[in-house]
């Protein structure tokens, strides 16, 4: 698999990268390359130039604040999962990461790259959505922040980026008492998700949940939160029939995708079962 010819640049600063990016004819940014290189090799993408972000050191920092973390765009997924504070304060992200790709992919892949790629079966995207992540974007008019939900809408490029560069992903820490999990049904051929859910529950008074965040991936056309299910589950009571109805209602509004291994109909069924089993488990805990 040989890509079409392209120019290659390896800028050392963000400004330089942005100015290269603004030049004529499409250019692609290269982070970990775990998605982009395949695109190039299969000639699904033939950009005029590839701008490599790997030399921009300012993108490689993990900065912990009082309420959350700022993850530089070039922080590797594996590095992120090794960070002690991330392990402690963002268990959902770590659980998700362990199910995303394999060690070789995580060794090079980045969280920001995964969000930009916004694969329909992406695990990282589901976690970022459920964790209320924000994406930090650098452009000629300065820096702006966008919620992950606005960034990943199923339309490419993610965030409608135009000559802009994602510089970081911001994640608020999970509440100490929150219960969360990531559950994934793998596509046997490729290891991506055919149905998965990132769920975080914050317990409130008398066993009822104060806050519920649920993001699904793999089955629907693109990873997304399920607001109707979230609100149905905010405040009890949690009897099985009610949960089931709420799941059904939430799935009704979605468009599903399928392939020869698992059809859209099966993915829908499987996602329903996944949600119902996981919620029962978490609510019982």
């Amino acid at each position: 698999m040989i890509p079409a010819a392209f120019d290659y640049a390896r800028p050392a600063t963000l400004e330089e990268a942005a100015s290269l990016l603004s030049q004529e004819g499409g250019a692609a940014l290269l982070a970990g390359g775990q998605s982009l290189i395949t695109e190039l090799k299969q000639r699904r993408a033939s950009p005029r130039a590839v701008i490599d972000l790997n030399a921009i050191t300012e993108l490689s920092a993990i900065e912990h604040g009082p309420d959350g973390v700022r993850i530089g765009a070039m922080v590797r997924q594996a590095e992120l999962l090794r960070d002690a504070t991330v392990q402690k304060r963002l268990p959902l992200l770590c659980e998700t990461g362990a199910a995303a790709g394999d060690p070789m992919i995580r060794r090079l892949g980045t969280l920001a790259g995964a969000l930009c790629e916004a694969e329909p079966g992406g695990d990282w995207v589901a976690a970022a959505l459920a964790l209320d992540a924000e994406v930090e974007i650098y452009g000629k008019d300065g820096t702006r922040r966008m919620s992950a939900a606005d960034f990943v809408t199923g339309v490419k490029p993610a965030g409608g980026l135009k000559g802009e560069i994602v510089t970081a992903v911001h994640l608020p820490y999970q509440k100490e008492d929150s219960r969360s999990t990531y559950r994934k049904v793998k596509h046997n051929a490729v290891g991506w998700s055919i149905a998965s859910a990132a769920i975080s529950l914050e317990p409130g008074e008398g066993g009822a949940c104060r806050k519920v965040r649920i993001a699904v991936s793999g089955a629907p056309s693109h990873p997304q939160r399920l607001p109707s299910l979230e609100s149905a589950l905010t405040g009890g009571p949690y009897e099985a029939g009610r949960i089931q109805t709420a799941i059904e209602e939430a799935l009704q509004g979605l468009t599903f995708r399928g392939d020869h291994y698992a059809s859209a109909g099966y993915r829908r069924t499987r996602l329903g079962i996944l949600l119902s089993r996981t919620l029962q488990e978490l609510l019982a805990a």
């Binding site: 046997n188 051929a189 490729v190 290891g191 020869h260 291994y261």
Partner: peptide, 12 residues
Amino acid sequence: PALEPSIPRFDM
């Protein structure tokens, strides 16, 4: 034919 046949990996 599918480009990625579902061959089992050792964790399967």
